[in-house]
Design a protein around this nucleic acid. Structure first.
Length: 755
DNA sequence: TTAGGGTTAG
């Protein structure tokens, strides 16, 4: 009687087992009920299929429950259950079931071993895998296609053991496409590309096996040039290989790495089925190529189509927001992150916290950081860097470092480099010195990256002697080390020494790079050493570095500072794609030569070319206008900067406005600005303007303020005394000179900041 | 009836 309806149930079960559509628990339960009512549940092959359906739709407990209730079991039943445990990540349970199975005298077959060995491809299960290999030999299955192929896979992935993998492969009785693909992917993984190519041609030319998308994905791992990627892409058409999601995303990723975003888009558009991999590949592909706008567009498109986003999509999209400084979209991504439950994901939260921090939202950033359940080192470094951007953020960075040291004894150089970033200011120097001694005591002491960061930190703190000491201590000096120390000397008025170091660098076998060349050229500019500058320019031409914007702008600047405007213009004209840096150099050049009108003209060309001015651009154009006393223009550019370009003015920008007002004698207005936003240089600019206009009222207020802020400074006393002298108020003038003498403030011999 | 390969992120 039993199983009389099996001919009805069987086709339904079979079609469900083969479908690519998602199977629900409801489907499984219905079939289960039907199996029972139609008395087909004693038909083992049908129950086994149901068991695998429960496992495929992720309902492992139901699978296990069914398994327990089955009166009869065969090797398929056991293998399916072991596979279900592995699918759910319960490795120990799976291995345990294997032992129970053998205890129950059920003989494992090639499928059972295939399933188990795949789990052992994880290095932490290699020991188990080797034991299973022993058992497999006992059953005489070592030369079997399925079991043997899985052994090959295990030896490559868990042990990087090429010899063992090859021995097993060569002794197989039969090899199919999957077996060949496993070998090819194994060699691609260990980086032996010549063997990959040899295996590929043998598979196709000798054995006539047509490659599939898996083969091509392994071949793609051997590509480093766009031509090679195109070749593999061509093979797909030659063999009629379906460019499905896996091959599609691998191709897309490689085209992106070669900078070919138009091919990325073509592949993306041609994909009928788009999964999360494809979406995250296209978003990260555009982000990698500094095309954040497009990347963000893809993200929004994805959300509009109601495609479920995953952690890869979220982190790539946030990276794009970071690149284009788009906080609004970032907040939208945050919304999706909450919606899909990725709020505590380490990867996603690390980028989002960086984005929030870049907009000064440190409280939000830290909140995200604290919620990450398993913080890895990148998350810690991101949080440290977030504080490092703050003025005087070294205290928080040091606290985070202490906290991190309580959780791990291994501190890597990237973390210390991040903390050092927070110490690039004189007031944070003591923290910087602490990190220095920490580095010297740790295994990081020989790391070039850490040494370079120390040189940079001391240099920014204007501790040149210490910068040099740190430089000398670097065991393997690279281009970054040399550029850092040469730059440090140049910025601190030691240009001759900088050029000497430049010679040492060449003698040490380190060639000029796009980093070291601009600093050396800039040393020449400040020395007006046009001959050496020209030599460096020649070198730049020969090595093709003139198209680099930093090299180009340094050369433009060098000729201008040496008074050779003709060559400066020539180099500007040779720039293929002048960007912000180049234009900034041109505007600064005119600003320095007091040519405000020309500076303004360059600024408008800059805007016409679709470039976005930054705070340096505005500093240059504001200083050009203010130097000439163009108050209206100064105010116009200042408003443009704040309103249109949303750039937060820094103290230098305010100083320019103060300077402009000061030059035309609008001292009260200047005073108002300095009082609200000014810094030390702004106060000094104002005081100097008061002296030029002999304005006692504002001059007194200003001088008092400087005395209050910098009590040991002689300049306000002298300037005030000079103002009184100018107004023929001799008594007052003498009074201020006396005051200065009384509190023991001395004028630096032979120097005055006015000079 | 059970099985083996592969792609994306900070």
């Amino acid at each position: 009687m039993s199983g009389k309806f099996s001919h009805l149930l069987e086709p339904i079960l079979m079609s469900l087992a083969k479908t690519s559509k998602p199977i629900t628990l409801k489907h499984c339960n219905q079939i289960h009920a039907n199996l029972i009512t139609s008395q087909c549940n004693s038909q083992l092959h049908l129950t086994n299929t149901l068991l695998s359906l429960y496992s495929k739709c992720g309902h492992f407990r139901h699978a296990h429950h069914l398994f327990d209730q089955m009166p009869q079991k065969n090797v398929v039943t056991w293998t399916t259950l072991i596979s279900a445990h592995l699918r759910s990540g319960s490795f120990t349970k799976a291995f345990h079931m294997f032992n129970v199975m053998r205890g129950a005298d059920e003989k494992p077959n090639e499928y059972t071993f295939s399933v188990l060995l795949r789990a052992c491809s994880n290095p932490c299960f290699l020991d188990v895998g080797l034991q299973i290999h022993g058992v497999l030999v006992h059953y005489g299955l070592e030369r079997d296609k399925f079991a043997g192929s899985s052994l090959v896979y295990m030896y490559f992935n868990a042990a990087n053991d090429v010899d063992h993998a090859c021995r097993i492969f060569h002794e197989l009785l039969e090899r199919d496409l999957v077996t060949w693909n496993l070998m090819i992917s194994g060699f691609a993984q260990v980086g032996d590309f010549s063997v990959v190519k040899r295996l590929f041609s043998e598979m196709w030319e000798v054995h006539g096996l047509k490659p599939d998308h898996n083969t091509l994905v392994s071949l793609l791992k051997c590509c480093s040039l766009v031509q090679e990627v195109k070749q593999i892409h061509g093979l797909a058409s030659k063999f009629g290989t379906d460019v499905e999601v896996v091959l599609g995303s691998a191709l897309l990723d490689l085209y992106a790495k070669c900078g070919d975003t138009s091919s990325c888009r073509k592949i993306f558009d041609s994909m009928e089925e788009k999964d999360n991999f494809i979406w995250s590949s296209i978003i990260s592909g555009f982000t990698k190529n500094n095309k954040g706008e497009e990347a963000v567009h893809f993200f929004k498109d994805m959300c509009r189509r109601k495609v479920k986003v995953d952690q890869h999509v979220l982190s790539s999209s946030l990276k794009a927001c970071l690149e284009i400084e788009d906080l609004n979209t970032g907040v939208q991504v945050h919304g999706q992150m909450i919606k899909y439950g990725y709020q505590n994901d380490c990867f996603v939260a690390s980028v989002l916290l960086t984005l929030y921090a870049s907009f000064g939202k440190l409280v939000d950033a830290e909140k995200l950081f604290r919620r990450i359940s398993n913080k890895d080192i990148v998350a810690w470094n991101s949080m440290i860097l977030a504080y490092a951007w703050l003025d005087q953020g070294s205290t928080q960075c040091m606290q985070l470092l202490q906290e991190l040291r309580r959780t791990t004894s291994q501190i890597r150089s990237a973390t210390l480099v991040a903390v050092l970033k927070s110490c690039e200011n004189k007031s944070d120097l003591s923290a910087g010195r602490q990190i220095h001694s920490l580095i010297m005591k740790s295994s990081v002491s020989q790391h070039t990256l850490a040494g370079n960061a120390l040189v940079h930190m001391y240099s920014e703190c204007r501790e040149i002697v210490d910068a040099y000491k740190a430089f000398v201590d670097i065991v393997w000096k690279d281009d970054g080390s040399w550029s850092s120390i040469i730059g440090s000397y140049t910025q601190n008025g030691m240009e001759l020494e900088a050029l000497e170091l430049c010679k040492d660098m060449l003698a040490d076998g380190v060639a000029f790079s796009t980093y070291s060349l601009p600093v050396c050229i800039s040393a020449c500019s400040q020395l007006s050493a046009i001959d050496v500058g020209k030599q460096l320019h020649n070198f730049a031409i020969k090595s093709g570095y003139t198209h680099d914007v930093y090299v180009g702008s340094a050369i433009i600047d060098m000729y201008a500072k040496c008074g050779n405007m003709e060559d400066s213009d020539k180099v500007f004209g040779e720039q293929l794609q002048p960007n912000e840096v180049i234009y900034n150099a041109m505007i600064s050049r005119y600003a320095r030569h007091g040519k405000a009108q020309e500076a303004i003209e360059v600024f408008s060309r800059f805007e016409k070319n679709g470039l976005t001015p930054n705070h340096v651009t505005f500093l240059a154009v504001l200083s050009a206008c203010s130097h000439m006393g163009y108050v209206e223009d100064t105010l116009k550019f200042f408003t443009l900067m704040v309103n249109k370009y949303k750039i937060k003015p820094e103290s230098e920008h305010y100083s320019c406005v103060v300077d402009a007002f000061g030059r035309v004698g609008r001292l009260e207005e200047a005073y108002e600005i300095v009082q609200k936003y000014g810094s030390e240089p702004a106060w000094r600019t104002l005081l100097s303007a008061c002296r030029n206009h002999n304005n006692i009222k504002v001059g007194e207020k200003t001088a008092m303020k400087i005395i209050e802020l910098y009590p040991s400074d002689h300049t306000p006393y002298i300037l005030l005394s000079n103002i009184y002298t100018g107004e023929e108020k001799w008594e007052e003038a003498v009074k201020w000179r006396e005051k200065m003498a009384k509190i023991n403030v001395k004028k630096d011999p032979g120097s005055s900041w006015l000079i």
